[in-house]
Design a binder for these strands. Sequence first.
DNA 1: AAGACGGTCAACCGCATCACG
DNA 2: ACGTGATGCGGTTGACCGTCT
Length: 302
Amino acid sequence: MRNISSRTSTKSKSIPTPCCSKVGIKKGPWTPEEDELLANYVKKEGEGRWRTLPKRAGLLRCGKSCRLRWMNYLRPSVKRGRIAPDEEDLILRLHRLLGNRWSLIAGRIPGRTDNEIKNYWNTCLSKKLIGQGIDPRTHKPLNPIPNSSEIANAPIQNSNPSSFPLEEDGKVYRAVATRVSENFTVTNLDQFPNQVVGDATKNRPNCDGFDMGLQSGNEEDFIGNGNDDTFSSFLDSLLNENVFVYQQQQQLQQPNMLEPSCQTMVSSSQVFNHGHIWETEVTSSRAALGTDNCGASNGRPA
DNA sequence: AAGACGGTCAACCGCATCACG
DNA sequence: ACGTGATGCGGTTGACCGTCT
């Protein structure tokens, strides 16, 4: 990680913006003095009220800039340094499950920010996947081999779905999973605010090419209130299942490509799943809205 | 030695959602 | 129900730095 102080004396960007266009509002890299002012103020007064914070803290910055600086750099819980191999593995699996939901992914990796993970993905991981012949958006082979694509494109069926009420960061999630014969297909990992379920399909973040489908917010499917433990354990199980299928696809395409850490996980998944083939199909937002170019249909079959 | 090039990452931008009156 | 300000999120930009030629 580059030392921030080496960048603090650089020229500020000068493009005017709606929130920073006021005369006297500073832009560009933060100086150590500004960092200290902000950190001291937030430690003393707490987070929030970002709009008025700069004035109260004696900073010539807009509130957005202050919030970003605190969240991505100054917060004590922010972990600096290189992404560890196990973190990278986790990012890969979470991205396969969640798509470009950087804040959700970051929420599962202690000390890492969404910005950091997003940067790491865009600069390192996506290129690494492309180099391995894998589409970083879909996590499927760029040039599918028929046999392997059979796994990747296992039919999504909708008989007897089970809903998983989940909650994280104060938001409620729903994952609808369907077990069909030997295949377990997660057909929906839905997110919606607890209070406005009906708006769940509006403006979902970019799914970035996932094979997306989204069940419209149907409150009858929702079973009670979940908690973070439920979400964690469910997501963990998804991750374990997901890595198994992921490695299966990779093995079919490039048999000698597995890294040692992944091989270990595959073994455990195989034991856990009693040799069954598991498929995880995670769906996300924008396709369901008809506002992206993912080319996906509107959710699961009825 | 120096310019070109590419990678990295902090910061900015626009937009959507939330909260509240 | 509606309007408005605050907050949060993902995409993009551009400066810095190391490596290559």
